[in-house]
């Protein structure tokens, strides 16, 4: 992906949009209420993105305790110095989220707002795209969090945040995940490397966009729970990798059916 520095939004303009977005909480309502997605039993995908969301529509979201494998907390950070404030960083990250992803991957989200359901297509490197998605669980002006659906490689949350410390602003991606089923658990060490490449490339692109070229991304992994949750082994029924392959193989049949319908 190429980021054109000319496209960068002036910082004053970003500051304005942050202030405009902030509004006081209604009396009697928690001040973070607007930041959370509404409670949904099953995910829905709008008609425009239905084709991309075939592995998402009708699925339930999965927190880390609904997955199968070991529970990992992985943290990627990159220091951005004083080039951008945490709020400016998050505004930019939300606005260009999919653009920062490595080439060959696709984020079909429209806006990073609470409750948004975004189909995604992940390049597996084996000549096949894995179709799944995310729910925007939480979004405020300094962070946003995705929650994964049944069938996704991982059950859990991915939080993108910016925070200030003595050295300026740091961008962070923190995932709290379990591989969703026994097949994904078997492939954990491959997926872990894929995830490293994916998020490190993403953060380098984010850093470049806010004026920090050649940024160095640090990664830290913590095994939170070494136990597998065997009662969730049946999650394999929803495995998005298997369903993506079946979807690909059945494409000719769908084309024939569509042709007959017309």
């Amino acid at each position: 992906m190429t980021i054109d520095p000319e496209q960068a939004i002036p910082l004053e303009q970003i500051e304005l949009s942050v202030h405009e977005a902030a509004s006081p909480a209604e009396p009697g309502k928690a001040r973070d209420a607007a930041f959370w997605a509404p409670n949904v039993t099953r995910l829905t995908v709008d008609a425009d993105r239905a084709a991309a969301g075939f592995n998402v529509a009708g699925k339930r979201v999965t927190g880390p305790q609904q997955g199968f494998g070991r529970l990992w907390q992985r943290t990627y950070t990159v220091k951005l110095g004083s080039s951008v404030s945490p709020q400016q960083l998050i505004t930019e990250w939300k606005d260009h989220f999919g653009d920062f992803w490595p080439k060959g991957n696709r984020f079909h989200g429209l806006l990073i707002t609470p409750g948004e359901v975004a189909p995604i297509a992940v390049n597996t490197g084996a000549g096949m795209k894995l179709s799944t998605g995310v729910l925007v669980l939480y979004a405020d002006d300094e962070s946003f969090t995705f929650m994964t659906p049944q069938g996704h490689m991982f059950a859990g949350w991915i939080t993108f945040s910016g925070f200030a410390d003595g050295a300026g602003t740091t961008a962070q991606i923190q995932v709290l995940i379990r591989p969703n089923d026994p097949i994904y658990e078997l492939g954990w060490f491959v997926m872990r490397r894929m995830e490293d490449r994916f998020w490190k490339a993403t953060m380098v692109n984010v850093a470049a966009h806010v004026g920090v070229p050649n940024a160095v991304v640090e990664e830290h992994t913590n095994l939170v729970d070494k136990h597998r949750i065997w009662r969730n082994a049946g999650n394999v029924w929803h495995n998005a990798a298997i369903r993506s392959v079946l979807h690909l193989l059945s494409a000719p049949i769908r084309r024939i059916r569509r042709g007959r319908a017309h």
């Binding site: 928690a30 930041f35 962070s143 969090t145 939170v224 729970d225 070494k226 136990h227």
Partner: peptide, 21 residues
């Protein structure tokens, strides 16, 4: 507690997982 954000929820899950283990 008057405020919990999504990172806070993740911290609670970490406590839960540690306790389970």
């Amino acid at each position: 507690v008057d405020y919990i954000n999504s990172t806070g929820i993740a911290l609670i899950v970490s406590v839960l997982a540690k306790a389970r283990s």
